[in-house]
Amino acid sequence: MISNLLNPEILIDQVINGLTIGGIYALIALGYTLVYGILFMINFAHGEIFMFGSFGGFWALTYFVNRGITGNHPILCVAVAFLVAMVVSSVLGALLERIAYRPLRTAPRLAPLISAIGASIFLQNVMMLIIKARMQVYPDIIPEEFLEMGPVSISYFQIFIISGSVLLMVGLYLFIQKTKVGKAMRAVAEDREAALLMGIDVDRIILITFVIGSALAAAAGVMVGMYYSQINHMMGFIPGIKAFTAAVLGGIGNVVGAMLGGYFLGMAEALGVLFMPAEYKDVIAFSLLVLVLIFRPRGILGEVVSERA
């Protein structure tokens, strides 16, 4: 199997596989990291927000298919599906913040964590009741085509996921760095009380953070649905954990770190399979996490934040 490593064609293929899944991990990981950066809590219901987003897109697409309008405007339908998914997830994220986390903002740090786990189980079960626990299949409205470049072939879906996730991430980065709201987000992350004294509406900024994180997860949800075709109420669990791992790998609280962590994890999974039997895919991911945390306890890009009370 080692000979595979020397085979550039396989290497390129695996890099593309890694970039595809890595982009999805990164998009979800951003939600974890944004919330952690501001509230210092892990939003364990984030995987379920991703799942609801995927279903939002699924419902929209199914509606279009039933109306028979996907044939003429497939791209427009997909764009609307993304929009619907983002709205569903954003509303859900905002509601979660309002109902499950805001009342506990001054409580001990374990309380919102437990609240998050509760919300996660609750949301899984809500979806289970809606879909009667059956697997749902994303409608195939855009047939899968391949871009052939010599021995390497890339699916247009892969190109779409890779470029789409990069675009979204660049957009987010610019938003945080260049806009007024982004500046306020950074200020709240740095010191909430001081930001409040400077006249920043902290509650609003926190809400916006949840909405942005949720919308990114929704985009990832629709991409996963279109790429893998099957979705169910438990689909948020594994990507949620992987993305959390990615966020921690990159340094939780750090936006660029979450992106890096996502790609790092995706690549490690894809390339790791070349050295080891495929059944150890998850072992590779979590061993890496342990290793990075031993040598860099705050993650790859983690900065040492001053101790807080």
Binding site: M1, Q14, T20, I21, E269, A270, G272, V273, A278
Partner: peptide, 8 residues
């Protein structure tokens, strides 16, 4: 995602 093992 089984593309890594299939690529292998």
């Amino acid at each position: 995602d089984f593309t890594p093992v299939l690529t292998k």
